[in-house]
């Protein structure tokens, strides 16, 4: 494994008074794609929100690129080079594609791929065909692409990608997979939350499986694929 980029130690988190994460440990190496897997309600989205600082009630040590980021406001975490693509996309529907990208724009960063609208349009040709279209008038799949592109405009070193395959047509899921592989090639690290095993296997180096807010399995993706008992217990039917 390459040098550690993101390291999470003993992460606890709460919704109201209900604890949902219990001492989650997690690492993502530089240039690595890690799948954070588990059933609905296992704590995948919560882990991402907690890392991103979007959940006030959290405890634990989060180090990103050598810097403690737990306790920082979300905007500072983002500026440190951590991008976040939420599960529900959260496109600015009143803004055009270009304006959506503008919101995400941050200065260039050492050690991270540099993005511009032109480069992103090459990666997502669909978006390039509609630079002036308002986000609200795009299909679900196009919005998903825009959400990723908007986050890339911040030139992040690592992207938290929350369930990109949830609720989209299988044909779009395939496009998402191709995109993640391409991003990895460009040197980006990805923490991907996912329930879909074939999708996760197609793109990830390693997997970390959560159940009821606790880590149950960490290892190479191939190892999880081979471990049918673990898959059955924590993931599929």
């Amino acid at each position: 494994m390459s040098a550690t980029l993101l390291s999470v130690r003993g992460l606890d988190a709460w919704y109201g008074r209900a604890q949902v994460l219990y001492g989650v440990d997690l690492e993502v190496g530089d240039g690595e794609v890690v799948a954070l897997m588990g059933r609905n309600g296992a704590g995948k989205s919560t882990t991402m929100k907690a890392i991103m600082g979007l959940l006030a009630a959290r405890r634990g040590e989060i180090v990103f690129a050598g810097e403690r980021i737990d306790g920082m406001a979300p905007y500072r975490i983002s500026r440190a080079g951590l991008g976040y693509v939420p599960e529900d996309r959260r496109i600015f529907t009143d803004l055009t594609v270009l304006e959506n990208l503008e919101v995400g724009r941050r200065p260039l960063r050492a050690g991270a791929p540099a993005w511009s609208p032109e480069r992103l349009f090459a990666l997502f040709p669909n978006l390039g065909r509609m630079p002036q279209r308002p986000g609200g008038r795009m299909s679900g799949g196009e919005q998903q692409m825009l959400s990723v592109a908007r986050t890339l405009m911040g030139n992040p070193r690592l992207v938290l990608l929350d369930e990109p395959s949830e609720g989209v047509a299988p044909v779009i899921v395939e496009q998402m997979a191709d995109m993640i592989v391409e991003l990895k090639k460009q040197g980006l690290s990805v923490l991907l939350s996912e329930q879909n095993v074939p999708f996760a296997s197609a793109v990830s180096d390693r997997a970390c499986v959560l159940e009821k807010g606790q880590v149950r399995f960490v290892g190479a993706m191939a190892q999880l694929e081979a471990d049918e008992a673990a898959r059955r217990e924590y993931l599929e039917v």
């Binding site: 979300p74 304006e99 911040g154």
Partner: peptide, 25 residues
């Protein structure tokens, strides 16, 4: 202006604007 785009984005979803690196405070 960029400020204007940020204002319009925050009008819709201020939390997301923060997660994209804008100091919304």
């Amino acid at each position: 202006t960029r400020l204007g785009v940020l204002i319009r984005a925050a009008t819709q979803d201020r939390e997301m604007v923060g997660a994209l690196g804008v100091n919304q405070a």
